[in-house]
Structures are given as C-alpha cells and as structure tokens.
Amino acid sequence: MKKLSKQDLLHLYRSLIRTRKFDQLNIRLAAEGKLLTFYHSAHGHEAVGTGAAAVVRDDDYLFIHHRGHGLPYSIVRGIDPKSCVAEHMGKSTGWGGGITGFHAVDKEMGILSSAGTIGSGFVLSAGYGLAAKKNGRGQIAICFSGDGGVQRGQFHEAINLCAAWKLPVVFVVENNGMAWFTPNRDTTAVENVADLAKAYKVPAEIVDGMDILAVYRATEKAVELARNGGGPSLIECKTFRYRSHSEGRPDVSHFEPRSKEEIAAWMERDPIKLFEEKLVKDKVLTATLIETIAREADEEAVAAEKFSFDSPFPDPARLPHMVYAP
C-alpha cells in the first residue's frame, strides 16, 4: 500500500476539481450547440475514474467508461483535457484528430479505445491483458464500465477468459443503478455486480464510489494482484449520476421523472465535497488553497474553450488515409 503524500492527495483533489470543471464546460458547450456530438456527463462519478486511474502506470492499458467522455480517467494521468473539448468541437487538436465525434483515445497513455457500442470494452480489455501478460513487463489493464454494460454477454465471456488464463485485468464497474432511462433493478435480479464475478471465481470488492480513497485503495490491491500474476479482479463502485443520461435528454426512470429526493441524498455525499472535507480536516487543504485550485481550473477551462474554438478543423483530405494502415 503506497503511503499517499500531501502532494499525492492534492493531485487527486485537483484532478477531481479539474474533471468537474471540464465536465461543466462540456455541459455548457453542449447546451450552446457548440459540441458537434452528444455528451454524457460525469457529474457524481468523478471519484471512480479519478481514484482508479490514479493507480496505474503510464504503460498500462485503460478502457474507459463513457461518463465524462474520458475526463475522469485522463486528467488524473496528466492528459491535457483540452484535447477532449477540441475533439467534441470537431477540431484537429482533439485527441482523435477531430474525426471521431466523441471517442476518447490516447495511444501514449494506453487509452486504446472507448465505448461506442457498449460491451466491447470487456473483451478488448481481455486482449490488452493478454498482450500485457505476453509482454512480461508487469503491465495491467483496467476496464471501466457501467452496471448496464455488464448485462451484455461480452462481460461474461471476457471475465471468464481472464479468469481462466489469469490475465492481468481489473474490472472497475461504476454502478449508478441506471442504464439510460432504465433502472437496473428491473432488468437484473442480481443487486451486486460483485456477485457475478464470484461466479467466475474472480475476487470482487464493493466500494463506496463517492469515496475516492476507497476506490484508490481497492484498485491498488487489485492492480497489485494482477501485476504479480494473480489474475483479474472486479471492483464495484456504488455511485450515482446527478444529471440525465446525456445532455439535453429527459431525466427519467422508465418514463417518470427520477426522484429529486434520491438525487439530493446522493449529492449530500458528493465525492468532491467528501474528499474536500477530509483534506481540510487533515490539514492538507486550506480555504485559500481550495480557492486557488478552483480558480486555476476555471482559468484552464476558459483557455481550453478558446484553444478549441481557435483550432482548425481537420483537413478532410486526410480521411481516406485513415481507413487502412500503410
């Protein structure tokens, strides 16, 4: 277990704040019609991606969940979030060169793909794990998904394969209880995704997804197991999405508005608020530092918007050359 220094803790905190600020930026840009594609906010989910992705090495592999379209998983790893904004504005400075729509990719940092059709993440991650095992350099793969995603067959096929072959893959499930408009209590009889892992003899842990340190510690343990040849594990993070499934859509459960009380109750346990309170109590954060970090993140977001706006569109002449590798 790594001892987290003051600097480490501040890095986590700053990453959470930046993730939320950039999420807010994308939300506003979506409302203003400036994103040329859809957007699924990470509001409420920030601690999961940030906490888990903080654990991995630069040469590990990540398959990201669609919440925040890459923000929680990349900011904490030092990837510049302006490339997310630029991609969504369709600009050549985006992380996919402005041709992907919404897909997050970063070859240098092992983000080899992100969900379009949900479910592929599980099986592709098995492939990343297979490569990692063959490489013999102690790399691992983390596959992020939602609780809806595990209802696809690929989850079961992948976790079975990873378990049988002891592949170094960590499945991090962001369980917010919903899949688009549908509450999962009505589409699965299994309350905890962790129970599914057990069926495949994969160790699984349930953690509070609003508690970034709990996510960090659970991931640390799973990653260590994977790096040392112990095979896959699953971490189920109980979390919540504050906003509608994607921007501009109704926020319903089946066809009725989601409960305002439920949303408010989860917001009481907001992951940023909880962590901030803890860091203040532990004297890691001060009121001035909180203000400085927030201001810097705001300034960064303003600059990213301008950067993206000012960036050129891709040259369409490139497109035919993007189809086949030379």
């Binding site: 040329l36 369709g90 996919g96 041709i99 992907t100 729509g101 497109l319 993007m322």
Partner: peptide, 13 residues
C-alpha cells in the same frame, strides 16, 4: 465514401 463514418464536422465529407 468507403470509410468509417467520420464524426463531428468531418461527417459531411
């Protein structure tokens, strides 16, 4: 075109 459907502003090409 014989290409994946590009996203955002490139779709129209």
């Amino acid at each position: 075109a014989n290409s994946p459907i590009a996203g955002a502003a490139m779709e129209k090409y």
